[in-house]
Design a protein around this nucleic acid. Sequence first.
DNA 1: GATGAATGAGGGTTCATTCAT
DNA 2: CATGAATGAACCCTCATTCAT
Lengths: 203, 203, 203, 203
Amino acid sequence: MNESAAGSVPPVLPGKEEAILQAAGRVFGRRGYHGSSIADVAAEAGVATGTIYLYFRRKEDLLIRLFQRSLQEYLESSRPLLAQAAAGEERLTRLVELHLEFFARDPDRARVFQIHLREVAPVLRDGITPTLREYVAIIDEVLRDGQAAGEFDAGLDLRLARHLLFGGLNEVVVSWLHADGRFELRDCAPACAAMLGRAFRRS
Amino acid sequence: MNESAAGSVPPVLPGKEEAILQAAGRVFGRRGYHGSSIADVAAEAGVATGTIYLYFRRKEDLLIRLFQRSLQEYLESSRPLLAQAAAGEERLTRLVELHLEFFARDPDRARVFQIHLREVAPVLRDGITPTLREYVAIIDEVLRDGQAAGEFDAGLDLRLARHLLFGGLNEVVVSWLHADGRFELRDCAPACAAMLGRAFRRS
Amino acid sequence: MNESAAGSVPPVLPGKEEAILQAAGRVFGRRGYHGSSIADVAAEAGVATGTIYLYFRRKEDLLIRLFQRSLQEYLESSRPLLAQAAAGEERLTRLVELHLEFFARDPDRARVFQIHLREVAPVLRDGITPTLREYVAIIDEVLRDGQAAGEFDAGLDLRLARHLLFGGLNEVVVSWLHADGRFELRDCAPACAAMLGRAFRRS
Amino acid sequence: MNESAAGSVPPVLPGKEEAILQAAGRVFGRRGYHGSSIADVAAEAGVATGTIYLYFRRKEDLLIRLFQRSLQEYLESSRPLLAQAAAGEERLTRLVELHLEFFARDPDRARVFQIHLREVAPVLRDGITPTLREYVAIIDEVLRDGQAAGEFDAGLDLRLARHLLFGGLNEVVVSWLHADGRFELRDCAPACAAMLGRAFRRS
DNA sequence: GATGAATGAGGGTTCATTCAT
DNA sequence: CATGAATGAACCCTCATTCAT
């Protein structure tokens, strides 16, 4: 009835699984993972409760797949854009911009990633870590390339630097969610990038 | 039965309310807020379920009070120690040390603060924000005093700087929790402080 | 799913909602509203606890709907029978007969209406009053028509007369319930009607 | 500490048991029997929860004793007043007046008797029936004396007549409670007595 | 007698998950 | 594939009752 031949036109044309995932993103974003029922998601997706279980084994899977799909999409689109920027601060700046842009584009996603995913994460470790590790690798690469280019301090503890970058930016995102539209997330990129650039810079 | 003659050192001396709070800290830390039942907490505290409700009105209150008590304790002990350090990087270093030390001392607390409190936070906003705001004020003061002392950049966006500091350090804590004892959290302080110092430094 | 081809006689044909309602009638009648648990009702209806909540939002609703359904059924069947009787004492007698017959037919219902509904009533006021008001209107009409026909005293305080009629008959029902089958409720109709007729009669 | 030698001054000087009973009357009247907790009653009485159990074995006992005390008081004060009135309609009128006056004087008591006592009644049968039977005897006597005096119909079914009287008046009381002060209960006595008088009168 | 902290069974309600249609 | 009624375990919370002080 739907799904159908996707033909050439790129990604969209939901398909029921995609529709459910998007519905879950909206519902979890609004009410939180624990505050949402499968029935809520089904209603938002316009399908029956049971239908969810044709595509997802457990409620958790909705969260895991939501995370995976979103992050993979992000990683794929980011990689070429990052490569275009010169190694070092320029590329770091690009990374910061992309990271913030990713969440600015979809507040519900931001809420799920930054807020609701956290408590559940320990349980879902296996579903989440592999995908996350890819992003970790990218960040580390940006930092290492910056070192190789002579812009970043060679003595940097890469793991700590990455946490600072990742955690710092995410906190900015969270503050933006709490601020509820009172400032533009994208506008924070330059100042964030500047501070992080100095943090990593060769002294 | 409990309480009893305290001898000299005043501080601990459970008392049932304190015992319950500590039990909640351990249980929530282990299984998460949503994964723990009031019965779990009661069992851990060695009291009956109903007893919890003699001291706490709702399950949420356990989390709120746990947060408030912990953070307030931390704030009170930190303030004098911070004041002893010279404004600027030295004091920033002290702040980083205290922050990490706070969580290093009690992994269960770290889990509750860094992981489980997040999703619930939106609901508990009123119980949490006021206390948190005090910490925010302290961080801001460290940054401002550093500016006044001529060590930190006067043009710094304080809000963003604070998020970087706070979010960055917390991510280090989370990574430490995930690492499950494979490194010493306190050891991260120097490198973190160094990076943050450079990030805020006058160029 | 059930319901099925009814053949000719339309009326019963449970349906799960109806089955639950009937079960609730029996259970409440036996143990009282406060003495019955949802689990009791579910067991009596042969369904799972959760199933009750597919058809009724709260425990109260069982009582309200039980009341409404019963009384409406009664009102609909009574109206034409009342209209057939001549205004005045004849119609009053018919009313008394119908009222007593209504409870005589189903002691559990009588217990719920006369005994268990009372305490709960204040809380359920909104659910009960509208339906009850219809019966009030019918009684008043019987009295007024009797006045118009010149049989009942024109100076009658209709409200008080109605309370006497309604409360008096209900007390007879209650006494019958307490007597536990030691007399036939229907047999009380003539004497009751006679007394009430005299009470309202033009002197 | 209290209770003490009552000396001559009549009934009052509460005493703790009396104070608790009065508190229970107010609390049950306001929130209903099932809506009130022992703690509520204790708070209203200004004693500790446990104290209740020094005077009353179970929660039910509060209700039973409340009923017994109230009704006995009423019976004792009514008997002489009834005796003063001439047998027949005059005494019936007096009975109606006393009955309504009894409830008009204390709406909380009216609520407990007319509303909250009902559902609980079946369980409390043994505690309530004996006392109630005394009132039944009084009513029957009024009716029988009226028959003997030649005013009331000798063929009257006494039991039914009593139910009509008792239930009818109680319904008037209930309607007064629901009306929440919009009319004066005592004012209903004449019309009620008139109707009942006609109902029982020799034709 | 009086207290009130403590108990723990019990009840209403929700919701992830299943399965007959 | 899709449905959505049905399930029943689980959980929060209340409260009558007890008992050590």
